[in-house]
């Protein structure tokens, strides 16, 4: 068992190193996200709408669209350099590859949010939060990124092997993300606006959703990366 996670860790470290060696992937994703956030908050200013009401919607739409860019790269490197077969041989288990890629995508998304979320915060001029609210906000960011990375990694493993990957990936991804979108917007909204809603239910929902979509690919990934 420890051997299993050791191998996950090895591939994860390799991917992270790759990510930071070239850096262009993370950088372009962050720039894209900054642009999105800028356009969104500026557009809301132009229409005189209350931005703090729409903050969580803007936040998550920005993250969802940027994640398409971020996740799409994760298997592309292997494909370009034909490393996939070697990786399959070295890991021996496709679940290991999935977990490593998933963790790598999660890390990239969290780094991305580290830059984009404070920026959106400044643009929209929302007041500071209390400790509990801030914790809830960060928690929902983490839960959202987890689900996004898990589903995205699984689907990217599929689309990367097809010719029309760029178009197919978002088409496959977004319908599956709807329950996550609902849950995560409820959580961020509650954190920001402090509405007294039964919230713990949504947190449990998100956690079980994420666990389901992390375990399910572990089973199905054998069929995705076959032969």
């Amino acid at each position: 068992m420890s051997n299993y996670f050791h191998r996950v860790l090895l591939i994860y470290v390799k991917d992270i190193k790759d990510e930071f060696r070239t850096f262009d992937n993370l950088l372009s994703t962050i720039i894209f996200g900054v642009m999105l956030v800028f356009i969104f908050s500026f557009a809301f200013q132009l229409t005189d709408l209350a931005v703090d009401q729409a903050f969580s919607a803007v936040l998550w739409v920005s993250i969802f669209f940027s994640s398409v860019l971020a996740i799409q790269r994760s298997f592309a490197k292997e494909r370009e350099n034909n490393v996939m077969d070697a990786l399959l041989l070295a890991s021996g288990d496709r679940g290991i590859i999935f977990l490593a890629k998933f963790l790598c995508n999660l890390t990239v998304l969290l780094l991305f949010e580290l830059v984009v979320v404070p920026l959106l915060w400044i643009f929209t001029g929302i007041s500071a939060l209390g400790h509990i609210q801030a914790g809830l906000f960060i928690g929902s960011l983490f839960l959202g990124s987890w689900g996004l990375a898990a589903i995205g990694t699984m689907l990217n493993g599929i689309t990367i092997q097809l010719p029309s990957a760029r178009l197919l990936f978002p088409i496959l991804l977004f319908p599956l993300l709807i329950p996550l979108l609902i849950g995560v917007i409820q959580c961020t909204n509650t954190a920001l606006l402090g509405v007294s809603e039964p919230l713990s239910g949504w947190v449990y929902f998100l956690i079980s959703f994420n666990i389901l979509f992390t375990v399910l690919p572990l089973v199905l990934f054998d069929f995705v990366l076959e032969g």
Binding site: L155, I158, L162, L176, P179, F213, L220, F223, E226
Partner: peptide, 19 residues
């Protein structure tokens, strides 16, 4: 491979409906 992928997506998408 398209058949395989479609089968995987069909399963995941169906599980998503009740969610």
């Amino acid at each position: 491979n398209r058949r395989r992928f479609a089968a995987v997506y069909g399963i995941v998408a169906f599980i998503n409906v009740p969610l």
